[in-house]
Design a protein around this nucleic acid. Sequence first.
DNA 1: AATGAATGAGTCTTCATTCAT
DNA 2: AATGAATGAAGACTCATTCAT
Lengths: 190, 190, 190, 190
Amino acid sequence: MKSKDELKEGIIIRATLQLIFREGLAGLKMSDIAKQASIAVGTLYIYFKNKEDLLNHLFLHFKRESMTQLAQKIDFSLPFKVNFKQLWFNYLTYAIDNPEQATLLEQLHCSPYLRPEVIEETDKLLQPIREMLNEGKRQMLIKNIDNELILAFLSGSINLIARRFSENDRKLSPEQREQTFEMTWDAVRA
Amino acid sequence: MKSKDELKEGIIIRATLQLIFREGLAGLKMSDIAKQASIAVGTLYIYFKNKEDLLNHLFLHFKRESMTQLAQKIDFSLPFKVNFKQLWFNYLTYAIDNPEQATLLEQLHCSPYLRPEVIEETDKLLQPIREMLNEGKRQMLIKNIDNELILAFLSGSINLIARRFSENDRKLSPEQREQTFEMTWDAVRA
Amino acid sequence: MKSKDELKEGIIIRATLQLIFREGLAGLKMSDIAKQASIAVGTLYIYFKNKEDLLNHLFLHFKRESMTQLAQKIDFSLPFKVNFKQLWFNYLTYAIDNPEQATLLEQLHCSPYLRPEVIEETDKLLQPIREMLNEGKRQMLIKNIDNELILAFLSGSINLIARRFSENDRKLSPEQREQTFEMTWDAVRA
Amino acid sequence: MKSKDELKEGIIIRATLQLIFREGLAGLKMSDIAKQASIAVGTLYIYFKNKEDLLNHLFLHFKRESMTQLAQKIDFSLPFKVNFKQLWFNYLTYAIDNPEQATLLEQLHCSPYLRPEVIEETDKLLQPIREMLNEGKRQMLIKNIDNELILAFLSGSINLIARRFSENDRKLSPEQREQTFEMTWDAVRA
DNA sequence: AATGAATGAGTCTTCATTCAT
DNA sequence: AATGAATGAAGACTCATTCAT
């Protein structure tokens, strides 16, 4: 008896990520995923109910991974602005340095594959960030504006910037990153 | 003859817009477009070389339309900030009030259908806005940051906000719009 | 414009019949049907929603055809027994001489493809025969037994006999047919 | 060892019977059989060479079982008609009360799984009944008609009746059973 | 003997595009 | 120009069977 391989699920996820990055979500074929993962097509269906299911898992997987990256070096004993800046740079760095994941999440987001519940679930991952914004407001450091509005403002700007400036020959320079943060901070500061 | 052609072309474009909004880009079938436009499938191929061609035309069509909306009430004899605010509100209003088009442009943007040249062409439409930013910098009213960075910052934030807040029951209130503009202006002001 | 061919539906039905007879229902492939009918696979789906739909139409088609055969030379001005015998011989002859159809109807009957409504509909085709049985009872020529019971008795016996004796080298001889009818008549006569 | 094997073989056979009755032969999957029998798929292939082999065994198993039922209370010292009636009632009762088996045998019969030799072998099981018919003819109690014809007549009618009237809410009443036997006896009596 | 994960050939169905009318 | 029936390549998914453990 071979036991259902924990590893194999990861191999499939990884293979799919690479394919979407290289060829795009639109041309993604189950048979290609199998080939890329060096397994049989049928095996895919042991680990995932169908294509949609695989893509939803994929989305959740990298959404969580990106959230983990986001929280790095955050230390609530430090001043708000320090953490805010760290968070912002974490996000930007991750988005710029992992264009694979970013592309994936973006392509999936406007695809018909994603189930609403999965999108909802990923939304919950933002909860700690919302709390942090609340803390910033309490300290009267940032504007008293609806969290969702601020979040949309922050994510939207950072996402597009990362997308536009992730290609190697036009990656954001350290100064540009500082400038962009300056814009962001001016936008939200009280 | 010309007018007849253009009329039908418009009908097809309009029909496609509605279908993408209702059913999404992924499920879009040529036969459905034909049905929605009350013509035969074959006729589609008289006006457009193929599906890709149709979608590229569609993209360009609404990109231009949105740009026209954008320029409304802009008057270069007025002060920079007045125009900047007007432009910003034009964009936001259009994006919120025409979720159909916004959805369309967004869905198309991360689809494999769009030709690079078309994306490039739409980029040119932003030229006047770039000039305006230059003027703002000359007057030392806005930060001296790379235009593309500013544009990405502005478009990104406004797009995501519009998407998140375009459903009828959570449309942005006038105050929220003002608040958002405040963030934007603080971000770019010198 | 080519108009949807009335004929083609018949061609498909005919091709399917031959295939089921030659190869059996179990191995029936849509691609083979298309080949046999000298059309493209896709064309099948213009005339029939899917495989199940095609097979249901097939069933109904030949059920009706067999019913038409059944009614031949029936003349209600003739005495009951004459008609009864004629009917019985019509059925037996059809079943023996068209083993293709018989095989088909039988195979379909115990397949998962047939929709209950279709089976119901074919049941209605027996109505005239039920009336005839009623007439026979009124004339006190046949036993006063529930029609459904008589029908099951008649169909069951005749079906199995036809199946067992339809191969060329053991077809029922005229005497055997008379003998079988004698059994049948003795069974139902009052 | 032997007994252990036979036990498991029986469990598999039993599980398959239930599945075919509940879900039909067409949807029958080896994996489902394994689940129903609470064993692993691989184990099926220890007891049966393949699916076809399993189904042939199944067919033979229940064919034999039904024959055993058939012979109950038959006593050749009793008069012919008594035995004939007993036999007939045995068959009818078994068919009505064990719709599971009846469904199974019927579904298998028009499936591509059954090997001709197996069908032949089951035919041999009818030998005692043929002898009985011969005895009836010798005593000039029944018509002098080819045994196969009589058998087909009897089985066909009884099978269809049992199928039509085996559902609980329309099971044949004792009177109806008597009536049906009356038809049968009239059919065969000399 | 028992297990069940892995395999991959096989099949239905879809849909962009063509072309005869 | 307009039509829509016809085409057939392409792809998701199934399931009997195998085989390493």
